[in-house]
Simulated scan of single mutants.
Amino acid sequence: MLSIRTLAGTCAAALCGLANAATYVDVPVTGARDHAFGPNGMLYITAGAKLHRYDTATCQLLPPIALGQQLVGVDVSIDGRFVAVADRAVENGKVHVYVYDGFGSRLPRKVEYPADFGENGSFMVAWMADSSLLISGSYSGSGWVPLRRYEPTPGTVTTIGRVQQNSMLAASRDGMTAAIAESNISSGPVHAWDLDTTAIGASARMNWFAFEAAIDANGSRIVSPSYNGAYVYERVGNQLVETGRIGQYAEWGPLSAVFSPDAKRLVTADYGWSYGVGAAQRGVKIYDADSLTLLSTIDPYPFPWNGNHALGQGRLTLSRDGHWLAATINGAVRLYDVHEELGTDRKPVSACATKTPSADSLRFERGLVEEIDRLLPRKVDAMGQFVE
């Protein structure tokens, strides 16, 4: 078994590679929940009842598409053609997702199926290699919901398991494996779901609330953040074996993570309390995915604690070519050009990302975070309760 490496460094952001900060542009979408990249440079963002689109080729927000009621998870199929959007809503006893043909001019299609007991909508979506779609759901209160699979041909939706409400899904780059992080339960189950068997093939329990999931290119590694740090797992047979951890309980840690296309880098968005060790650890960081060594902090943005939930500030997504990184911040989605930092391509960079992080640009956001920190205790137990 590989040894566990717990990373709890105390270096300030300015000393951890901030000089290599990536350029960025802020896309002004208030209330953003999720985002995903299309292959043509389009960034899709869910917020409220609308699907927003930002074109990185023209550096412009396009007219939003009005959908549903409370849009949450969004994902783009591997071939780039279809966009799936989850909606936390029940209509006539049915829940649904929307499927939008990004290459065509047709309106998004509503895919409906009967709501399970207590279910109040869909939550997260993930496209697989065979163009099927995994769907998790939300619940009125607290409980389990079906894990579903939608197959466009022949257009069927089937239940393939049960998971906790608001479970996060993330497909590997090859689309053969999906990471599942079960939310809303303190045992924090994390799974690897296999397309070839259409079943869960490996699992682990963090014994903390799991609020995100990242998976590498071939599904061999999974990262799931919690208040006790982000757990790094390697798949060994039918088990997920912990090989490392990033963060420090009650101080700082990742809210979200994504692997680079070649799986050599791991990008995280880290929260930190505004005093002690945590004050120096906030921001968007790049780690060596094998050694978990911190390589650089590309933006010391002061992400706040997320309250054991996903799809808030700190949510990260990466374009398939590794050129663009999107992070949800206060009142916007920050779009970084990271092709140099991740070494993924040498295309001419777009003119969209022209700003660089600075202390002045973060002064207001830091003030908000520090005021929240002052009002709330910082220790949280495995049940998500604040500890005095």
Rank of each mutant, 00 (worst) to 15 (best):
V190Y: 09
V74E: 12
T268K: 02
G80R: 09
V284T: 14
Y113N: 07
Q164S: 08
Q60L: 13
G155Q: 04
P152T: 15
L7G: 09
S172P: 14
V111E: 02
L295N: 08
G104S: 10
W273V: 15
T344Y: 14
G102R: 03
G188N: 07
A192H: 11
S142Y: 09
E182F: 09
T354Y: 10
G137E: 06
F386S: 09
H339V: 05
G48A: 12
S140D: 01
A269H: 03
G253F: 07
A230N: 01
V125I: 00
H339Q: 13
R148I: 08
A84Y: 14
A310M: 04
F37L: 01
G247Y: 01
W193C: 09
A49M: 12
T293I: 02
R374E: 01
R221E: 13
Q70S: 11
G118Y: 04
G322H: 04
P254H: 07
Y98G: 02
W324T: 00
F386T: 14
R109V: 14
P63V: 07
K379L: 02
L51Y: 09
L15F: 04
Q69R: 12
A351N: 01
L67D: 13
A327Q: 11
P304Y: 11
V267Q: 00
V223Y: 08
W127Q: 03
R162D: 00
R282T: 13
G247L: 06
I78Y: 05
R53Q: 09
V333N: 08
I135V: 15
L255C: 05
K264C: 05
A192R: 14
A353T: 03
A178K: 00
G38H: 10
E365N: 05
I78F: 10
L61T: 07
F82L: 04
T268I: 03
Q239W: 07
V125A: 06
T6E: 02
W208Q: 10
G68S: 09
S224E: 07
A210L: 13
M1A: 15
S140E: 05
V125P: 11
L7N: 15
R88Q: 13
L266K: 00
M1Q: 11
M42S: 15
L18N: 14
G276P: 08
P189G: 07
V125W: 13
P300H: 03
D288C: 04
G343C: 00
T177W: 12
A217K: 11
P28L: 03
L15A: 15
T56N: 06
V72P: 07
V125R: 06
R53C: 03
A129M: 07
A192S: 12
S142M: 07
V241F: 05
G31A: 03
V111H: 08
K50P: 05
N330I: 06
G272D: 14
H323T: 13
N20G: 07
A202Y: 01
D87Y: 00
P254N: 08
A57M: 01
E251I: 01
N184R: 01
L147T: 11
L195V: 04
S122R: 14
L169D: 12
C352F: 00
N120D: 15
A8K: 10
S274C: 12
R346G: 01
Q165K: 00
I329N: 06
D130N: 13
A47K: 02
D75S: 15
Q313H: 01
